[in-house]
C-alpha cells in the first residue's frame, strides 16, 4: 500500500561553507544509490538557492551529510517543522554513507523501488472531453467523477500493472501511462495517426466492452431459457476468455488481467454499475449545460 503519511526523509548533501566537497566518484555513487533506494536527495552548494521546505502532515526529518571540518555542526529548524541531523561523512565510502542514512531512517517505512510499479492512468485534461468511455470500460473501478462530474482517477491502486487498455478506448488519446513503452500512451505527442485509432477503439470495445457484455447477457438469458439449456455460463466464460486471450496475445493487455477477471456474472454487474455511473455523470453534465 502506498503511503507517505510517515514524514519522508529528505537527504541533503551539503558542500557549502564549513564543508569540503565530496570526491566526485563518492558524490555520484551516494546520489545514485540513495535515489535507487527511494530517497529524495538535494545537493546544496555555497551560494546556491534555498532548498524548498515541503509542507508535510508530520514533522519532516532532514539528514544533512557533509565532509565537515571537525565535528558536524548542530542545526535547528527555526520554524520547528523539521528535525535536522547532521552527519560527517569524511573518508567514508558510498556504501558506508548509505549505511549512515539507513541508520538515521531507523526502519521508518517508506516506498521503495522494486516493490511496486507506479502504474496508473494519468488524464490529459487538455484533451479529455469527459465522454466517460474510460469509466464505462474499466472493470476495476479505477475511474470515478468529482463533485462537478468531471472524470478522474480515483482508485489508482486498482489498476492492473502493464494494462493500458483504457487508454486504447479513449477517443481523444487523453489517457497516459507514463511508464508505458510506446507513444502516445507514454505521454509522447499525439499525432493525427493516433487520433485515427478510433477504428481500433471500436474493435477493442466490441471485444472487451459492448459486444462481449451483450453476448454474455444474451447467453445468460438463453441459459435460463428452456430452449437453450446448452448455453451454460461456462461456455460464456470460455468465450470471454477466448476474446481476451486474443487481446493478450496481441500485446494489448497483460496475462495478469486475464487471471484476475471476475466471474461472468460479476463482469456484467460491474459493467452495468460503471455504465450507470457514467450515465449519471453525463446526464448531470447535460443538465448543467
Amino acid at each position: 500500500m502506498l503511503s507517505n503519511d510517515n514524514s519522508p526523509i529528505q537527504v541533503i548533501i551539503y558542500e557549502g561553507k564549513g564543508a569540503s566537497p565530496l570526491a566526485d566518484e563518492t558524490r555520484l555513487a551516494v546520489l545514485s544509490q540513495l535515489l535507487d533506494k527511494g530517497f529524495a536527495v538535494a545537493l546544496a552548494k555555497e551560494g546556491g538557492r534555498e532548498i524548498s521546505a515541503p509542507t508535510l502532515k508530520g514533522k519532516q526529518r532532514l539528514l544533512v551529510l557533509g565532509d565537515f571540518a571537525g565535528d558536524a555542526p548542530s542545526l535547528e529548524d527555526a520554524s520547528g517543522q523539521a528535525s535536522i541531523e547532521t552527519v560527517t561523512v569524511s573518508g567514508l565510502s558510498a556504501d558506508e554513507v548509505l549505511g549512515r542514512v539507513e541508520q538515521f531512517r531507523e526502519g521508518q517505512p517508506m516506498n521503495e523501488p522494486g516493490k511496486w510499479k507506479p502504474w496508473f492512468p494519468v488524464i490529459d485534461y487538455d484533451r479529455c472531453t469527459n465522454c466517460m468511455q474510460c469509466l464505462s470500460f474499466c472493470l476495476f473501478d479505477v475511474y470515478g467523477v468529482d463533485t462537478e462530474n468531471r472524470i478522474q482517477v480515483q482508485n489508482n491502486d486498482n489498476c492492473k500493472t502493464n494494462c493500458p487498455a483504457c487508454s486504447r478506448v479513449c477517443p481523444e488519446v487523453a489517457i497516459m501511462f507514463p511508464k508505458y513503452s510506446g507513444g502516445p500512451i507514454n505521454g509522447d505527442k499525439v499525432n493525427t495517426q493516433d487520433l485515427e485509432r478510433e477504428k481500433m477503439k471500436v474493435d477493442i470495445s466490441s471485444l472487451l466492452g459492448g459486444d462481449i457484455y451483450a453476448s454474455l447477457r444474451t447467453r445468460s438469458e438463453q441459459a435460463k431459457s428452456r430452449f437453450s439449456k446448452e448455453r451454460s455460463p461456462d461456455k460464456a466464460l470460455s468465450e470471454r476468455k477466448k476474446c481476451l486471450t486474443k487481446l493478450q496475445q496481441d500485446g494489448m493487455i497483460p496475462a495478469e488481467v486475464l487471471e484476475n477477471l471476475p466471474s461472468p456474472e460479476e463482469i456484467l454487474r460491474r459493467a452495468a454499475a460503471a455504465a450507470a455511473k457514467a450515465d449519471v455523470a453525463l446526464k448531470a453534465q447535460t443538465s448543467a449545460n
Binding site: P8, Q10, G38, F39, G48
Partner: peptide, 27 residues
C-alpha cells in the same frame, strides 16, 4: 549534474510521488 558544481534536487520517481500524492510535489 553531480560534477557541475551547481546545486540541484533529485527524487526517486515522480510517478511514484504522484501516485502517493506526495506532499513534496507541492513544494
Amino acid at each position: 549534474l553531480s560534477d557541475a558544481g551547481r546545486p540541484f534536487e533529485a527524487v526517486s520517481d515522480l510517478c511514484e510521488m504522484s501516485a502517493s500524492r506526495d506532499p513534496r510535489l507541492k513544494s
